[in-house]
Nucleic acid binder design. Structure first.
Lengths: 334, 334
DNA sequence: CTGAAAGCGCTAACAA
DNA sequence: TTGTTAGCGCTTTCAG
């Protein structure tokens, strides 16, 4: 690999001059600029970001913590974030944490050792201490798709409460009066909010709220399937299920399928996220859509402003979810 | 952020000593080692990888080029690679290229500027020049899920030819005699191989091969849907479709659904990859399974050996795909 | 067992 | 407009 010294020598100038043409700083005569550029091209020179990072304190690398890259919702979100990072000249380092505080901490330490310019968090609803720490150490961070109500941190998320409300209202309007919920970890804010929205909808329609209709499940398909199985095996099973994400909803559909319970004829199922999976299920899944592209765009904007320091006030951007009616929900029979 | 100087001063030793305890090199007395460690902990010291990279020529960062992170197959593959990278102390930088040579080149340049220790390629079947260049520049690389027959490069992939053969044989054994293929870009080796396997199966069963039954499509759901639509709209439509990846197969199922053509009663559809989508479709998709986890594991092993230089011969590891029969294929009627 | 010092490739004053 | 030079934080001989 050629270094700045090779270029300088070959072009008959000093390394400072080369540095200036690389960074387009200072004033350089057109003639030398051309000569230097020509040499750079000829030697296939790539300036070392690691060397420049040492003095500039910029690595042009952003870290992203998500629960699981294999979860289509997060994969799509990551893709959106990746694209917008590239537009601004950043690389994206993705770390899956499985929502395990251990892995979260390890990933964050790695990112700090590598001097990531910023860290985007889509995980870690619980131990907010980690985040507090980051803030305190003056690390540029932003939170996405997760509420951190008690923290002063840039955030972009969807109105989870409204989402839960929309989901439940849709089912209620279809005539359902007994609706079960498969929730993710209730310690996580956004999860709690979705359930709160559901409950609110019940109240607004003067329907009774039953604590035992709320079930917590692991956040993948299998968890949804197991939990839905328990729900459907009960003697007084509900006529509808609100699954707090699409993966859980798919699990629920499988549980119904295995029991020969028709969807939506005998049980309606609604999901949350509107990941690629939803549209392609059979029946296609009714769900609450998160504006994934927009979430990614906004969070990259926030963090880049944060990194560049041209922003001093934190903000919380709340996008609104939308109900997408497909084939997995129908009016209550019997 | 504390630096090595802060630690040295606080512990009353030289920076060389601190460096040695960090890297566990040289011989340090237990007593000073303990003292230094204590100080590091107390000051929450994180050694700067960017500084050490400058001398050690190691960034502990591996780049991964894939067509699209939002494609569940690649998301799962990336997750597997990520996990194994972490085990070995590497971070993963993922770049989606949409199979566009431009983006591939840009991504690779970025990775080189950042001195990625290694680059894993799951994209770029075409312009092998890029890869040739990398090899020539002595960059550690490995190719996954893509054949580069004319290149001397570490590779781990599935036997695509066998996969195509298994898919076609399965359909033939179900009584199908007219099987269409929805292929990806035929310039890409693995794509070509799948079709070759299909053709071989036809021959082995003394069935005629029709050039016009092979259709090339963009590699996402919509492409599969459009292409399948054309196929299904023909007067002498085939009784089965072999889609060269699950996304295309899903598109095909949608096309059939829209035309009220029952799957598998009126048309059988088989996919390739066995991504998370396959099992959860309705009917669940029969497909050719790639051992995604194993692919990831092996490629990380290869590249890490390559990086550490404890390997001089290149190898090509070929894993065998398996037929997974589900509900989207059935015996030919009528 | 410990430390002094050179150097990794680049940036950023400051001089010239 | 161009060049000199002092770091950035760490590793690595080489002395002591």
């Amino acid at each position: 690999m050629a270094t700045i010294y090779d270029i300088a020598e070959e072009a008959g100038v000093s390394i400072a001059t080369v540095s200036k043409v690389i960074n387009e700083t200072g004033r350089i005569s057109d003639k030398t600029r051309q000569r230097v550029k020509e040499v750079m091209k000829r030697l296939n020179y790539q300036p070392s970001v690691v060397a420049s990072a040492l003095t500039k304190k910029r690595t042009y690398m952003i870290g992203l913590l998500i629960p699981d890259l294999a979860n289509p919702f997060f994969a799509e979100l990551a893709r959106s974030i990746e694209d917008h990072c590239h537009e601004l000249g950043f690389n994206l380092v993705i770390c899956s944490t499985d929502n395990e505080p251990d892995k979260e901490e390890r990933s964050i330490n790695l990112l700090r050792q590598k001097s990531a310019d910023g860290i985007i968090l889509a995980t870690g609803g619980k131990n907010q201490d980690i985040i507090r720490n980051l803030i305190q150490q003056n690390q540029a961070i932003a939170v996405i798709a997760r509420g951190m109500p008690s923290l002063s941190v840039d955030t972009v998320l969807v109105d989870d409460n409204l989402g839960g409300y929309l989901a439940a209202s849709h089912l209620i309007e279809l005539g359902h009066r007994d609706i079960a919920v498969i929730a993710e970890d209730l310690e996580v804010m956004s999860s709690k909010e979705r359930v709160r929205g559901y409950r609110q909808a019940l109240e607004d329609h003067h329907l009774p709220y039953r604590e035992d209709r709320i079930r917590v499940s692991a956040f993948h398909v299998k968890g949804g399937k197991d939990t839905a199985g328990q729900i459907l095996d009960e003697p007084d099973r509900p006529t509808a299920i609100f699954a707090c994400n699409d993966l859980l909803a798919i699990g629920a559909m499988q549980a119904a399928y295995e029991r020969r319970i028709a969807v939506p004829e005998e049980v309606s199922i609604i999901g949350f996220d509107n990941s690629i999976l939803a549209a392609h299920m059979n029946p296609p899944l009714t769900t609450i859509a998160q504006p994934i592209q927009e979430l990614g765009r906004q969070v990259v904007n926030l963090i880049s402003q944060e990194i560049n320091g041209d922003k001093t006030t934190k903000q919380r951007i709340v996008l609104l979810p939308e109900l997408v009616v497909r084939g997995s929900t129908g009016s209550r029979k019997g």
